[in-house]
Structures are given as structure tokens and as C-alpha cells.
Design a protein around this nucleic acid. Structure first.
Length: 784
RNA sequence: GGGCGUUUAGCUCAGUUGGUUAGAGCACUUGCCUUACAAGCAAGGGGUCAUAGGUUCGAGUCCUAUAACGCCCACCA
């Protein structure tokens, strides 16, 4: 006999190991079943899983379990990401806490420390996946820095280099002065900062005339090599071609005309600092201007500035420069301004645009292929919801060359060797003496961009690759589209000539109850595993999967997990009731069906049809509410209540067992543990585990429209009768006269046996009821 | 500056191709320990669907503006 209370901790013990040990998580590469492959977005080995991960993997697990029950060769490939910059930062800090400096420690030992870190966190993450119950095929687990990925990365690098799609160049890049590495544009986040527009006086050489040059970064004036105005700007016509005197350093620099100078903006004069501003860099290229780098890698001022400023930070230097300008009467005006300033996504410090020699991927041809492919509905990546397609397309339109080199140690080392001016790029080190390998590693996203196929064995022509590429689906948050989805798409289409995945299911972000992002500084974090302890993984999963419609953000609400627990407790008890009454049932015989049997079978089949339709569209919240009302209203409140009067009937038992089995199966992808527990107790089952049982199918022969209407009407009558009874304070001992006698089932349901009468009653003694009932309740049982 | 999203009950959210009386959970009111479940059951109250126009026999749903909030993108000196 089942306990009257659902005990999630007990139920969720040991099942995961059982599924895993029985091989249910494994793909069936040798079978003829249609493949359904998802590669897991590899979590960073930097830390542990949070609620966002729990949401992400729950959605995928639902799809995988559903597809498996539907008869597909469902394959979910797990793995983790080495997360170059993020992990390196963690390991540097860990060593620092032990008093060890990264550079003194040396590259080799540092990498060992990174591998130790990876192993530790990998184990934690795997244990967390198990708690969540996700059906990952561990026999195919990969790591973005394992040998196979290293080979794939090198191959792409070498091939692209030979094709001219990867090049090394001196360009302006986003420099993170804290991590001391280059960043891609995607790794720069902009935030508003209070600053000012400083108007500086650039005097014309040998003249009292001057240009009013407005800038937000006066400290970079040491790097100025020109001042630009628009060629159509009448105001400055006679300045063009002459020199102005750079303040403080008193050096003459030319006044040039360039399209970049906008007559409408500011004063129309722009100082040009080619080494420290992306626009100015372009202007400098057009006019062959000198690039003067004025900062060290940690963003302190270098020896290219007057000695009094050398060694100052950018901020200190700005203050000093402003003081000095003011003293010399060269500061014309300070206009307060709020503007967007770029910061490093990882370290949070202000990004410094700097000219550096870095490696780049030439994006235009790759992006154009994607834009072209997206026009063909049989070849495109189908975003779900479709609006996210725009996010990718827009990025493909505006993207520019991807800076892929990082001045870090943890990552894929760039397969380029140098000897003097010679460069060698290849899979292995070149023959001969004196070659030195590039010290840098690649952006972590360079390897994760190869995830959908490198994990399947590419560059080798493996059976896995053949069968599971393109993947059928990818699931991730919309915040990852620029970093990852886009790059997987252009890499997949370039390297394998096909989209990496057919569908791309996008979910939102999870926020706290007040709609704020979860963050350490706010202290509003929720550990999903605390929730699992309190309510079980099944409750958490169901909540995450069904709370909001696809593609939208979610506000975390523990109350909802609690009410999901109540729902599962309801399912538990309904099952308990059914199991008590179907004990020893040998065979499901759907014969001699009564009206209520036909009614529940009809409702059930309609639900199966709808649920399947919405599962296929990833509309899990709709599936959730379909099943919820079927379980609560149709099955528990109505069928079970009515079935209580015919429990010795073999048909009732069969129907109970049949419907319960179907409910468990449809709920299984959402709440795998409890459904498995109950499934194992069924007297009749079609598989050794619900996980490998077959999904319910719609059966037209079980649709009985007439009986459905009859019972619907009876249910409406019951509800209305109870309502009237309550509103009029009708008590048990009062007699009720009906125009016609309700059927036996209704008499039992409403406990009317003792109160019903057909005798002639004095109309005054029951006027409250009879008129009301007839007036209020519309039902054939009274009107006939 | 460009784009996207959201706005529905006290709160958090559903609402599929336009179609009877707009739904759920939580909260609230009332009555019940009815042997599956009191973490439950039964019944109930509560919404001019952000605003203003429009299309339509019919609009929460489609169109056009407006507002508030949020997000993404963009080289703005």
C-alpha cells in the first residue's frame, strides 16, 4: 500500500542510476530508428549549475524523453566548456590565495592546475545533472578542450588560414587591462556612465585662431595625430591643410577632412587618436596617420606621454590633464554628459581600444552564407519562437572580423609558429630549429562553435557524424545567440555545408521575484538544489517547463514549486486509489463500456491528440495545462468519483488502469521520477521502465461524442445542483421533489437517496428548492 | 539612433488559425475530517484584457498611433 503522502526524496533515490545502468540514456546508433539528436550547451567548468542551467537542461530532457517514447533514436550528447578566460580567472585567483603567481608558476604547472579545477567541477556538475534526472548519454561525453576538439580546432584554423579566412593583423581591438587580453566585440558590455564633453582649445599654428575640439577622453590627446573636420564644413575651410598645436605637448598636427567628422555633432571638429579609438583607427588608415600607443597593457600611461604623466592610470591622467589644460586656458567648456562606455564582460573594467597584432576570422563571406541559407526554409535554422531569427540575421549583417586570439594560457593554443618574419601555420610544429609557437590561445567560443559536429567525430568521417548531423534541435537562452548560436551556424554551414541543427529552441532568462537578474552582489541567488531538497526535482522541472510560454523570461516563484508539489501529491493519491482497486488485474479489456467509461476515454484521446501536437511544437506550458485539467477535473474529480460506484466492474478497473498509464506516460518527460515509481507498481505495463515505454497515441475508435455530451451534462447538473443547494442552505433532512427522477448514478453522487421524493408534498414546504432548481439549473433531468 | 518584447484577476502567468459567459496557480470568502488525497474536497467572489482610433456580423486576439516598463544592437567624437 502506498503512503498517503508523496515522498519526493525517497522516490528520487536510485532511479537515475537504474536508468543509466540499464543503458536507457544511450543512443542507438546501430538501430534503424530515426535520429533525434541534441547536443547539450556545454556549461562552463567555472562553477556549479544554477537555475538557468536547470531550466535549460529540463527543456532538453523533456524533448529527449518524449522523442525516445515516440520511437526515435534519441541522443543527447553532454559535455562541458573549458571557458578559457572565465576559468583562467578562477584558477589565477585560487593560486593567488595560496600565494602563487601565475607567471612564476609557469605555463605547464598552471595548465595542470586548470585541469585539476576542471576535474573537480566536472564531477560536481555531473552529480547535479543526476539530481535533475537528465537523460544524457555519458558514453559520448566531450570536453571543448579534449583531444578530438583540439584536432578539430587546429584543422579549422589551418584550413581557414590557407583559404585566407583567418589572418593575423595589426588592428584596433578591445583590450581588457585587467585580464590583459584582447576581447571580441561580443565580450564587451556597454553601460551608462556619467562623464563630460570636454571642449579643448587646439590653436592654429602661429595664430591666435583655434579649433574647439570636443572629446570625452582628454587623456588620449597624447595619441592625437590629426584633427578632422568635414570637407563641406564652411566654418573650418581655412583651417584645412594647416597645423594646429596639440595642447600640453605643443606639437603641430594637421587638420584634415574626413567623412567621419559630422558637422551636426559637437563642434564639428574631432581629434584623431588612431591607436585608441576604433573610428580614429579607420580615419588614420585613410590618411596614413601615425599610430601612437600611449598606454601599457594594464592601461597605465607609457613613455609616449610627457614624463609627468608616465605611470598614471587612465583616470588619474585625465584629472591631471584637465588641471593642466585649465591652467593654460585651453579648457573651453565642460559639458556634462551621460554616455555608454564599454566594459569587459568578465572583469568589469573599462575596455581600452588598442592597436595590437591579433588573429582574426574574416567574417563577411561566412556571414553571407548564413544569410543566404536562411532564405531557404528547408535548409535554414528554424528558430522557435521565430522572432529570434532576426537576432541572428541582424548580427550576420553587421558583424565584422572576429578577433580570436586571447593572451591567456588556458585554451586551444594557436597553431602558428614564428621564426623571425616567417610564419608557419599547421597541424604540427614545423621541422627545423628556431621556430617558436604563438603564445596565445583561441577565444573559447572558437571551439564551442564546432560543438555540433566536432563532438560527433569531425574531422573524421564517423558513423555518428553521418547519422546525427545536422542535429535535430538545439536549446539555449536568447542571450547566447550572438556568442554561440550564430557562430555554430556559420561554422557548420562553411565546414559541413549544412545547418548545424534543424530547430533552435530559445528560452528566456530567469529572474528573481522582483524581475531582477540573479547576481552575487544582490544576494538574490536561488540554488536549484535547495529547491530539489524541499520539493523534489520533479516539482522543480515541471515548474520550469510550464510556468511561462516559450521564449519569454521567467520570474522565479517558490510558491509555484510548492503548488506543483501539491499537484504531484494529487497524482500520487489518484494513483494510490487506482492501484488499490486494480490490484491483480490481468488484462485491460475495454468492453461493455458504460457512459462514464466512454466519456473519459473520449476526453483522454482528445488530450492525447492535443498534447502530442503541442509537444511537437515545444509548447510545454500548453501541454502542462492540458494535462493538469485532465488529471484534476476529468480524471480525479469526475471519473474517479463516479467510478467509486462500480469498482467491482472489470471494465471500470481496466479503464482506470488504462487512463492512469496514459497520464503517467504523458507526464513522464516532465516529472520522470514519480511517474517511474508509480509505473513500476502497475499490474500491467508495456515495458520494464516507463522511460522506454511507448507514448500514448490517439485512437479514433475511443471517441464517443454522444456519451461525452451526456456525461458533460450530468457533470454540469451536479455542479449546479450543489451550488443551488449551498446558496439556499438546503440541509440533509429536507425533502426534494424533482420533476423527473435523476439517474441512479446522480442520486448516488449527490447522496439524494434519503431526500428524494415523488410524493405529493405541500408546495409551501419546499418552495425554496423546486422553483430555484428548475429556474436555475438547465438540465434535461429536470425538464423532461 | 535602429530593432524586439511586455502590458489580461490582489500577485505570477496562460489564452493556438478572430467565434458562446476571458482561464490557471497562489491569495481571498463560505461550508465540509465525504475511507485516494485536509499539503484535501465542494461552492463562491474578483478582470471596461495599458490608452485612443480602425477593420469585421464578431477583436484579449488583426491594423494604425500613443504611453509605461524591459531587453538587444549600433563607431557617436
Amino acid at each position: 500500500m502506498l503512503d498517503t503522502k508523496y515522498n519526493h526524496s525517497l522516490i528520487e533515490e536510485n532511479k537515475y542510476e537504474m536508468w543509466k545502468d540499464n543503458g536507457y540514456f544511450k543512443c542507438e546508433e546501430e538501430s534503424n530508428k530515426k535520429p533525434f539528436c541534441i547536443v547539450l550547451p556545454p556549461p562552463n567548468v567555472t562553477g556549479v549549475l544554477h537555475l538557468g542551467h536547470a531550466w535549460d537542461v529540463t527543456l532538453q530532457d523533456i524533448i529527449i524523453r518524449y522523442k525516445k517514447m515516440e520511437g526515435y533514436d534519441a541522443f543527447w550528447l553532454p559535455g562541458m566548456d573549458h571557458a578559457a578566460i572565465a576559468t583562467e580567472a578562477k584558477v589565477v585567483k585560487r593560486l593567488k590565495d595560496k600565494g602563487i603567481d601565475k607567471y612564476e608558476y609557469g605555463r605547464e604547472k598552471f595548465l595542470d592546475a586548470c585541469w585539476d579545477w576542471t576535474k573537480e567541477h566536472g564531477d560536481i556538475i555531473r552529480a547535479q545533472w543526476a539530481k535533475l534526472g537528465v537523460a544524457l548519454d555519458y558514453s559520448k561525453e566531450r570536453f571543448t578542450l579534449d583531444e578530438g576538439l583540439q584536432e578539430a580546432v587546429k584543422k579549422v584554423f589551418v584550413d581557414y588560414y590557407n583559404e585566407g579566412l583567418i589572418y593575423r593583423g595589426e588592428k584596433i581591438i578591445n583590450w581588457d587591462p585587467a585580464a590583459q587580453t584582447a576581447l571580441s566585440n561580443e565580450e564587451v558590455v556597454y553601460s551608462e556612465e556619467k562623464s563630460a564633453f570636454y571642449h579643448l582649445k587646439y590653436k592654429l599654428e602661429n595664430s591666435e585662431e583655434y579649433l574647439d575640439v570636443a572629446t570625452t577622453r582628454p587623456e588620449t590627446l597624447f595619441g592625437d595625430t590629426a584633427v578632422a573636420v568635414n570637407e563641406n564644413d564652411e566654418r573650418y575651410k581655412n583651417f584645412v591643410g594647416k597645423n594646429v598645436i596639440l595642447p600640453i605637448v605643443n606639437k603641430p598636427i594637421p587638420v584634415i577632412t574626413d567623412e567621419h567628422a559630422d558637422m551636426e555633432k559637437g563642434t564639428g571638429c574631432v581629434k584623431i587618436t588612431p591607436a585608441h579609438d576604433p573610428n580614429d583607427f579607420e580615419v588614420g588608415n585613410r590618411h596614413n596617420l601615425e599610430r601612437i600607443i600611449i598606454m601599457n597593457d594594464d592601461a597605465t600611461m607609457n613613455e609616449n606621454v610627457p614624463s609627468k604623466y608616465v605611470g598614471m592610470t587612465r583616470e588619474e591622467c585625465r584629472e591631471e590633464v584637465l588641471k593642466d589644460l585649465e591652467r593654460e586656458g585651453l579648457l573651453l567648456e565642460v559639458e556634462p554628459l551621460v554616455h555608454e562606455v564599454g566594459h569587459s564582460e568578465r572583469t568589469g573594467v573599462m575596455v581600452e581600444p588598442m592597436v595590437k597584432k591579433q588573429w582574426f576570422v574574416k567574417m563577411r563571406p561566412l556571414a553571407d552564407t548564413v544569410l543566404e541559407t536562411q532564405k531557404d526554409k528547408n535548409k535554414k535554422v528554424n528558430f522557435v519562437p521565430t522572432r529570434y531569427e532576426k537576432t541572428m540575421n541582424h548580427w550576420m549583417e553587421i558583424t565584422y572580423d572576429w578577433c580570436i586570439s586571447r593572451q591567456l594560457w588556458w585554451g586551444h593554443r594557436i597553431p602558428a609558429w614564428y621564426k623571425g618574419d616567417e610564419i608557419y601555420v599547421g597541424m604540427q610544429a614545423p621541422e627545423g630549429e628556431g621556430w617558436e609557437q604563438d603564445n596565445d590561445v583561441l577565444d573559447t567560443w572558437f571551439s564551442s562553435a564546432l560543438w555540433p559536429f566536432a563532438t560527433l567525430g569531425w574531422p573524421h568521417n564517423t558513423k555518428l557524424l553521418e547519422k546525427y548531423y545536422p542535429n535535430q534541435c538545439l536549446v539555449t537562452g536568447y542571450d547566447i545567440i550572438p556568442f554561440w548560436v550564430n557562430r555554430m551556424t556559420f561554422q557548420g554551414e562553411k565546414i559541413l555545408g549544412q545547418r548545424p541543427f534543424e530547430d533552435c529552441l530559445i528560452h528566456g532568462l530567469i529572474r528573481d521575484k522582483l524581475g531582477r537578474k540573479f547576481s552575487k552582489s544582490l544576494g538574490n541567488g536561488i540554488d536549484p538544489f535547495d529547491m530539489i531538497k524541499l520539493y523534489g526535482a520533479d516539482s522543480l522541472r515541471y515548474y520550469l517547463a510550464t510556468d511561462v510560454s516559450k521564449g519569454t523570461d521567467m520570474r522565479f516563484d517558490e510558491e509555484k514549486i510548492k503548488s506543483t508539489w501539491n499537484y504531484i501529491n494529487k497524482i500520487w493519491n489518484a494513483s494510490r486509489f487506482a492501484l488499490m482497486n486494480i490490484e491483480g488485474l490481468k488484462e485491460i479489456k475495454l468492453e461493455n463500456l458504460k457512459d462514464i467509461d466512454k466519456w473519459i476515454l473520449t476526453k483522454y484521446n482528445k488530450v492525447v491528440k492535443n498534447v502530442t501536437k503541442h509537444m511537437d511544437k515545444y509548447d510545454f506550458n500548453i501541454v502542462g495545462s492540458e494535462l493538469y485539467s485532465f488529471v484534476y477535473d476529468d480524471f480525479c474529480s469526475n471519473y474517479i468519483e463516479m467510478a467509486k460506484f462500480s469498482l467491482d466492474d472489470e471494465t471500470t478497473k481496466s479503464v482506470l488502469c488504462y487512463i492512469l498509464t496514459g497520464i503517467l506516460k504523458m507526464l513522464h518527460p516532465f516529472m520522470p521520477f514519480v511517474t517511474e515509481e508509480i509505473y513500476q507498481m502497475l499490474p500491467i505495463k508495456d515495458a520494464e521502465s516507463i522511460m522506454i515505454s511507448s507514448y500514448p497515441t490517439y485512437d479514433k475508435k475511443q471517441i464517443f461524442e454522444d456519451e461525452e455530451l451526456i456525461v458533460d451534462d450530468e457533470i454540469l447538473f451536479i455542479k449546479n445542483f450543489r451550488n443551488v443547494k449551498k446558496e439556499n442552505n438546503i440541509t440533509k433532512d429536507m425533502k426534494i421533489k424533482f420533476e423527473s427522477i435523476p439517474n441512479e448514478l446522480l442520486i448516488k453522487m449527490l447522496k439524494l437517496e434519503d431526500s428524494i421524493t415523488t410524493d405529493e408534498l405541500d408546495i409551501n414546504s419546499y418552495n425554496v428548492l423546486s422553483n430555484n432548481i428548475i429556474a436555475v439549473i438547465y438540465s434535461p433531468y429536470f425538464l423532461m
